[in-house]
């Protein structure tokens, strides 16, 4: 069963005085199955961020639909959006987005508190998550007192604690050193093995190669996708790298691209 379905998504930005139009997304189609770990790759300006913002219900598309667990998120009313986001989506951002006014523990509690959960219940949920993410000893500290990797693990804990349908990660390793990045990616794989669906937008081949499937976006469309299948991470890395080269040299090898092009909306077998 697919947990996320994106059909014919289109987004056109109009400048403030309506002068010029910028087409960020032309026609995006893909779906994510329950328990999948999907990475979305693309160059700057390819529409990745726009796509993620729409999936996160922070932005609205010009046309098209987004179904989360069969429910069209675009039909949710503005005032219910925040609660919907809180209950169904978990976020991990490049720059962590922790609130410096809260301790690590309170940052993780934030979505639960907003949902009106009681302290004992929150505490009970926090215990195992903090242990798994190895941040139990940091709980009383404040964001400015811990390292980047620890901050990102806090953000992951915050995303996990609501047991969301889908975790959206926006360039999660972008601000981390390679060791922290590696450990975060291993963490994502581990969480994914536990059944959590993850959708990650990234630049990094390394990050993408830890996913089960990689989607490539170019000029506002899903240009290509690779399944990991039985491949090792190294093999996947190599293939992603090749594909990116292909995309970069796009025009010259148009025929090759044609051969590789997978029709939007292709389903995982």
């Amino acid at each position: 069963m697919s947990i996320l379905e994106v059909n014919h998504l289109k987004k056109v930005y109009t400048t403030r005085f309506g002068g010029s139009h910028v087409q960020a997304l032309t026609d995006v189609n893909f779906s994510v199955e329950q328990g999948e770990f999907v990475a979305i790759m693309g160059e700057s300006g390819s529409g990745k961020t726009t796509l993620l913002n729409i999936l996160a219900t922070l932005d609205r598309p010009t046309s098209g639909e987004v179904l989360l667990a069969g429910k069209n998120v675009l039909s949710i009313r503005e005032r219910e959006l925040a609660a919907f986001r809180r209950d169904n989506l978990g976020f991990v951002f490049q720059d962590f987005n922790l609130l410096d006014t809260f301790s690590i523990q309170d940052n993780i509690f934030l979505p639960l508190v907003l949902s009106g959960k009681k302290y004992p219940e929150m505490k009970q949920k926090l215990g195992p998550i903090a242990a798994r993410l190895e941040i139990t000893s940091l709980l009383k500290k404040f964001p400015y007192e811990v390292s980047g990797g620890q901050k990102q693990r806090t953000a992951v804990a915050r995303a996990l604690i609501t047991e969301p349908q889908l975790i959206l990660a926006d360039e999660p390793t972008g601000a981390l050193d390679s060791r922290s990045a590696d450990s975060l990616l291993r963490l994502f794989e581990e969480i994914n093995r536990g059944g959590q669906t993850i959708l990650m937008v990234t630049h990094s081949i390394k990050a993408a190669s830890s996913a089960g499937r990689v989607l490539f976006i170019k000029d506002g469309e899903v240009f290509h996708q690779i399944y990991r299948g039985g491949r090792t991470q190294e093999e996947l890395y190599q293939q992603i790298s090749d594909t990116l080269t292909l995309i970069a040299t796009g025009a010259a090898v148009a025929s090759a691209a044609n051969y590789l092009h997978v029709e939007g909306g292709a389903r995982h077998e």
Binding site: R86, N97, R158
Partner: peptide
Amino acid sequence: DRFTIMEKVGMDKRE
């Protein structure tokens, strides 16, 4: 900054 973070984490704009 706080405003945007809270919005992403699931707080209503009006809230």
